[in-house]
Write a protein that binds this DNA or RNA. Sequence first.
DNA 1: GGCATATAGTTAGTTAAACAACTAATCAAA
DNA 2: TTTGATTAGTTGTTTAACTAACTATATGCC
Lengths: 146, 146
Amino acid sequence: MPNNQFKKGELYSFITGKASTAIARRLQKKFNAANLNLTIEQWSVLYHLWKQDGISQQELCNATFRDKPSITRLVDNLEKLKLVKRVSSKEDRRMNMIFLTNEARKMEEASMELAEETLNEALEKVPADQVEVCKQVLQIVYDNLR
Amino acid sequence: MPNNQFKKGELYSFITGKASTAIARRLQKKFNAANLNLTIEQWSVLYHLWKQDGISQQELCNATFRDKPSITRLVDNLEKLKLVKRVSSKEDRRMNMIFLTNEARKMEEASMELAEETLNEALEKVPADQVEVCKQVLQIVYDNLR
DNA sequence: GGCATATAGTTAGTTAAACAACTAATCAAA
DNA sequence: TTTGATTAGTTGTTTAACTAACTATATGCC
């Protein structure tokens, strides 16, 4: 029984993701306090667009680990906020290429600073090598379940 | 700078909790396949009630790390499913004590088995000592942000 | 007793996730 | 070239999270 690492009563927080929920809530509060009118989910889409925009909604699905309806609605809301624009592709008219507006580009620096700040608060007093192990475990978990 | 453990580009999955999302989705699929008509959130409430029922909604808030409106609605839906009952306390009439029905008690064993199964799949190929480190890190993160 | 304050829970409104069913465009193969 | 399958994206429905505003009960203090 090589993998019975969880006895009853220990599995709750692993499944419910208490830690990542707490991180997301803290970051959301920082956004609100800084008058960054963004949800964490919207930020997670912009995060990938800041690295490269002009990608399709399907590529955003893969990058953000969300399904297509979720991305449709997130892009809807980001468009309402005038942070992105849908441009239908000329090569394949099924596809929408998603582009950032200048407004959205301006938000990158401030929001990324708040994200790093949040993670540093979250990881206070955790030795770097343990953080590394934790990251690796979470990556394996993700790969195991895909 | 003792805590700058995250360079840009590494923080995304920590914040978005990709791993715990994947675990929850896998467990939900197992519930559906087993005709357990339960959401993961409903299960997370039952999880605490199986340990002890007859507790207040506020105690459920603390146990499940949710706010009061969330618990109100979860209890609403669990009541519709006839899995719990609200009984207003005689000592303090503001409080609802939440009790399991027999129906709900019957679901404990099967659902907990599926939860353990899910975690074992998630943690396949992860050495037990690394799982331990990961759990400790996530606990510290949670404590740091409370 | 009466008033302020705190606590328990509910309601309303917005955003998002999951799933199923759908449209439209593309591609592949007979 | 037309038919069938695949891919990209949208829409509808249910469940849930978060905030703010609300009701009702309890408590503490004068």
